[in-house]
Design a protein around this nucleic acid. Structure first.
Lengths: 331, 331
DNA sequence: AATCCGGGAGACAACGTTGTCTTGGAGTAG
DNA sequence: CTACTCCAAGACAACGTTGTCTCCCGGATT
C-alpha cells in the first residue's frame, strides 16, 4: 500500500482533486464546510503532499533548501558557522544540506554539483580547492563564499579582516618588547593564510622573524615550534595563524616548559583558551557573525537582488588573556 | 530561458526522448554512436536531469538523502557525530539534511516532519523532546536514535554505556580514597542523564554523596560547584556527568583554587582536556563510532532489513589524565 | 422578471521523467 | 527465399501536483 495522493483525499472527502489542492495550499476560495471535510480526510489518511510533483508543476521553482559546504563540520569554527547559517535558514523555513570537504578539491566540485542538481536555492561554500572556475556554469544558483575567497570565480564573499587582524596580533607582541616574532602558518595555497601572512609582514616592516608555512594540523605545528625554539637564536614570541596551529604550539611550549616565557598570540579563538595556563591571547574571529551575514547575503540573492559581487569583511577582536602579554626577556 | 529538458537534448541530438533517458540512466541498449551524440548534446546544453520529475515517475522511491537531527551542530560531540554520519552517507552517495534542535521539543517534531516530507530515505535523531510518540505515524521512514533513547516509540538506538561508564568513573574516584563524591548532572528528563545517575548510585552502593541535578550549561554548573564546595561538609571529589558541566566545574575549582585538591572525573571527553592544569580525567564517549554505527544501522534498514528494534551500546573509555587521580586528604 | 455578475468548484492539461508496449530492420535458421 | 528471432529505438501513458479555463448557481441590478 503506497502513500496516499491528493486523489485519495478527494475521494474520501467527496470533493474534486483541485479542491483538495486548494485547501492544502491555503487558498481562500473554498467553503468552510468543504475545507473541513478535506482536512479531516487529510488527517485520517495521513496525507502529505509530494514535494517532487509539486515542484515539478509549480512555476516558482523554489525548493526552500540551501546547500552548505564547509571544511569539516566537526571543527569548532565550521560548527559555529554552520549553526548560524542554519538559524537564518530556519527563520525563513529553509532547510540545509550539509557537506564536509576536508581538503579535497574533488569533493568540493562533486558536492557543489550534486547539491545544485538537487535544486538547492543557493549555496554557501567555504572553498577548499584552489580553483572555483567550475562554478561559472552554475547560472541561476546564487553562491556565497565564506571564510576563504574563491579564485577564478566571483561572488559575494564573507571573510574576516585577516590582514588587519594578523597585524594587530603581531603589533601586540611587539608592544610587549618582542623583536623576534615567529610566524607559524598554514598552507599558502589558502587565500586566508596568505592574508594573515601579509598582516604579519606589514606589522613587522621589513624585519620579519623566522617563518614556517605549510603546517597542517596540530602535530606538525608542535614539531615546528619545537624546532624553532631549539634554534641558536630562538624567537621570543610566536604568532600562530590558525586554530590547530595555536594548539600545537601550546603543546610544544608546555613540553619545553617555555609556556611562561615565550609569548603567544593565535589567530582564531578556540574553546577553553581561557582555561589554559597561561590563558591564550587570540585574535578572535566571529564565525557566528560570518554565518549570519553570509546567509543574509545568500537569501538576498535568492530573493532577486542582483548587484555586483560584494566582499564583506567581518572584524576580528583581540582578546588578551595572558599568553600574549609575556614581556620579552634578555634580547 | 529556463533549464533544458530531456526533450531539448533529444532534439539537438536528433534522437527520441526515451533514448536520452536511456543514455542518462546508463542503460546498455543504446548504440555507441547515438549515445555519443546524446552525451555531446547534454554537454553543450548543460543538461541536468530534474530529480523531482525522476523521483515522481520512478517506482523505487529513493531520494538518496537522509535527515539528521542533532542537539546543536556547533557543539563538539554533535559535530563529530555529524561528521561520522556524513562520511558513511558519502560513501553510499547519499546526502545529509541537518537540523539543530537546541532543547526545543517543537522544533524536533517540526523538523522530523519536514524532513520526512522531503522524502528523506531515513532519519537519525538525537531526541530532545520527552516524547517521541509522534513518530509512530512515520511508517515507511526508517529511524535510528543516537545519544539518547526515545520514549513512546521504539526503533534502533545507539548510545554509550552510560550506566557502566558512570560507575567506572565513580569507582575510579573511590579507589583514590574518596568517600564524599558529588554528582553534578543534567536535566533528569533526559534518559541518558538518568542512566549516568544510576551508574553513580550503583557504584556508591547506598551511600551517595551530595547530588545536584538540572544543571544546564557551564554557568549553572560553575555556580553549583561553588555552592557545593562552600558547604560545611564539602565533597572531596566530583563526578560531572556531561561535557559543559565538567567545564563549569573546572572553572569553579580554579576560582576557588581547589583544582589541585579536589578530584574530578567528567563524563564525555572534550578538546584540550589534556592541556588543562591538572589535565582532566574523563570517561570518554566515542561519538565517531556512535555515528558510524548509527548510520550503518540506518542504511541496513533502508536496504530492507526488518528485524526488531535493536539497542546498540558503544563502550566508553576511562582516560586518566590527572584530575581524577588526586587522592582524598584528611577525612 | 430578465439579465448580469461574481465566486466557488470541477475538468483538463501540463510539468519532466521513466515503465511498458510497439515497431522495424538486421541477422539467422530452415 | 521465407519465416522467425532479437534487439535497438521510438510512441505513449503515467507519476502527483497546480495553473487555467469553464461551468453553474445564487444574489444583485435594472
Amino acid at each position: 500500500m503506497s502513500r496516499p495522493t491528493m486523489n485519495d483525499v478527494a475521494r474520501t472527502a467527496g470533493v474534486s482533486l483541485k479542491t483538495v489542492s486548494r485547501v492544502v495550499n491555503g487558498e481562500p476560495t473554498v467553503t468552510p464546510d468543504l475545507a473541513a471535510r478535506v482536512r479531516a480526510a487529510v488527517e485520517t489518511l495521513d496525507y502529505r503532499p509530494h514535494l517532487g510533483a509539486s515542484l515539478l508543476r509549480r512555476n516558482d521553482r523554489r525548493t526552500r533548501m540551501i546547500g552548505v559546504l564547509l571544511e569539516d563540520v566537526s571543527n569548532p569554527f565550521s560548527g559555529v558557522l554552520h549553526r548560524a547559517i542554519e538559524e537564518e535558514a530556519h527563520a525563513r523555513g529553509v532547510h540545509v544540506l550539509t557537506g564536509s570537504l576536508g581538503e579535497d578539491e574533488r569533493r568540493e566540485r562533486e558536492l557543489a554539483r550534486a547539491f545544485r542538481q538537487r535544486q538547492t536555492d543557493g549555496l554557501i561554500i567555504a572553498p577548499t580547492g584552489s580553483d572555483q572556475t567550475y562554478l561559472s556554469r552554475f547560472t541561476g544558483t546564487p553562491i556565497v563564499f565564506v571564510d576563504r575567497q574563491p579564485s577564478g570565480f566571483l561572488a559575494d564573499t564573507v571573510v574576516s579582516t585577516n590582514v588587519a587582524g594578523a597585524a594587530v596580533a603581531v603589533r601586540h607582541l611587539a608592544a610587549h618588547g618582542h623583536r623576534r616574532i615567529a610566524f607559524l602558518g598554514d598552507n599558502q595555497r589558502i587565500p586566508t593564510a596568505r592574508e594573515r601572512f601579509r598582516g604579519y609582514l606589514q606589522a613587522l616592516g621589513h624585519r620579519p622573524g623566522p617563518v614556517v608555512h605549510e603546517l597542517r594540523g596540530e602535530a606538525a605545528a608542535e614539531r615546528a615550534t619545537i624546532a624553532l625554539l631549539r634554534r641558536a637564536d630562538p624567537p621570543t614570541a610566536l604568532f600562530t595563524s590558525q586554530n590547530l596551529i595555536t594548539i600545537g604550539a601550546v603543546r610544544a611550549l608546555r613540553r619545553l616548559d617555555r609556556h611562561r616565557s615565550v609569548a603567544l598570540v593565535g589567530f582564531d579563538d578556540f574553546p577553553l583558551a581561557d582555561l589554559l595556563e597561561p590563558a591564550v591571547t587570540v585574535v578572535a574571529q566571529h564565525p557566528a557573525r560570518i554565518g549570519r551575514v553570509a546567509a543574509g547575503a545568500l537569501f538576498e540573492r535568492i530573493d532577486g537582488h542582483d548587484g555586483p559581487p560584494r566582499e564583506i569583511r567581518v572584524a576580528t577582536t583581540l582578546i588578551a588573556r595572558g599568553s600574549g602579554e609575556i614581556f620579552a626577556t634578555g634580547n
